[in-house]
Structures are given as C-alpha cells and as structure tokens.
Amino acid sequence: MEPFISIRGARKTYGKVEALRGVDLEVHKGEVVLIIGPSGSGKSTLLRSVNRLERLDSGTIYIDGDCVTDDKADIRQIREEVGMVFQSFNLFPHLSVLENITLAPTTVKKVAAIEAEEIALRLLKKVGLSDKAQAYPDQLSGGQQQRVAIARALAMNPKVMLFDEPTSALDPEMIKEVLDVMTALAREGMTMLVVSHEMGFARAAANRVIFMDQGQIIESAPPDEFFTNPKEDRTKRFLEHIL
C-alpha cells in the first residue's frame, strides 16, 4: 500500500546545529505514530516540516501524493488537509470558542456561517465542551483550551493530524481529558503523528513508536515491543530516564 505520508532524506540545520540529519519515515493511512526523544532530538522540527512551518534544507515530504517540499506546491491547499495541535494551544484570544473553530472553514473553505457553526457545535460536543461555545479562551482551563484547539483543527476535516507535545503545558489532572479525545480520534481511524512522551497514550492508541536522537530515527517499533524490549542502547538509556 502506498504510504500516506512519506518523508525521504529530511535534513535541516539551524546555524551550526543539525536538527534533522537525514530522516526517512513512512506513515500509512489510519496509522498513529508516536515520536519520542530527548529535547533537541529534532522531533518537533520533523513534525513542523510536515506542514511546512519549517522548511527543510533538503529531502522530500509527500502527503497523499502532494509534495509539501516543492516550492511551487499550493501549501495552503495541503495545510487545509493537515490539522495541527500545538503545545501552547495557540487559540485566538480575541475570538470566542465558536469563532475560533469557524474562522478557518468560513475564511478558507468559504463554508456558510450557519453550516460552520453546526460543524463547530458538533465538534465541541465531541470534545466534551458543548457548554463553552460562547466562552473566550482566557476563561478556559489549559485542558479545555487544548480540546478546543483539537476541535478547531478537526473543523477543516483534515486527513491527518499533527500533535506537537499536546500535553506538555498541562497540569497532570488535565492531561487525561486531552488524551481521551486523542485516543477516541485514533480509534475513529484518523492518521496521527504525535510528538509526546505519554506512554499511556502510546500503549492505548499508537501503532508505532519512533525514538529520535540527534536528528535521526534510532528505533521504530510497535509500542509493546518498543517499551518492553528496545533494541538500541540509546533507546534503553532514554527509556530508563522517563519510565
């Protein structure tokens, strides 16, 4: 089967720091891939280059046959189909929850306002925040904001979702509510690329765990195998730190 996301020879340097040193990765439709690794390992850079928030120095990335790394590519078209959730939520503080979710569909896809609101309300119900449609982001807890951010990304009906450390900025008691939403999404068959250290989520929802270090993929395995029987020394040492 043709991979849904295909990354070949991805390289990226910031000044003298090599963030990515030739990364190859394939993700199939419906697959949930968790990327872990120490800070500075290049995992966020890799994720952010999938929707070209970072530009690669060399290498290619294809999503569903569209070349992301081609300068002539219609990147906006591609971004419409790639949802992204950030560590710091990045909700728009001047807009209500409902407006946060309807902004992109009405602006980019020219969906009628009423229809966009219907979609937004359905998604809010899905993330368990039906009563917060009229609230503003600063009135919500971190966990609620992140769930709104997920709903906002889903409103564009993406084919793949990118999560950049979605629970790192959250208090422990709020992590679960976000992971529950992500797990439900994974069960529905969403293709997901997740940078996170949430082992519980990995076991519950991931098909594959990838360990990155110093800009390279060191190990890739299904979660059970990865956590119980890692092959590489560097992976073992890292797991000792976080488990």
Partner: peptide, 22 residues
C-alpha cells in the same frame, strides 16, 4: 506570540488573511 501566526497558517489561512483576522 509567534504561535498565533503559525496556528492560523496551519489552518490553511494565507499570510494576509492571518494578518487581518488573527
């Protein structure tokens, strides 16, 4: 914050749309 522009771009907005609306 830089994340505001990034979030808008990630949703598929153009730079000028992001500037005007966000």
């Amino acid at each position: 914050p830089k994340g505001q522009m990034e979030a808008a771009l990630a949703l598929g907005l153009s730079r000028s749309q992001a500037m005007r609306k966000v």
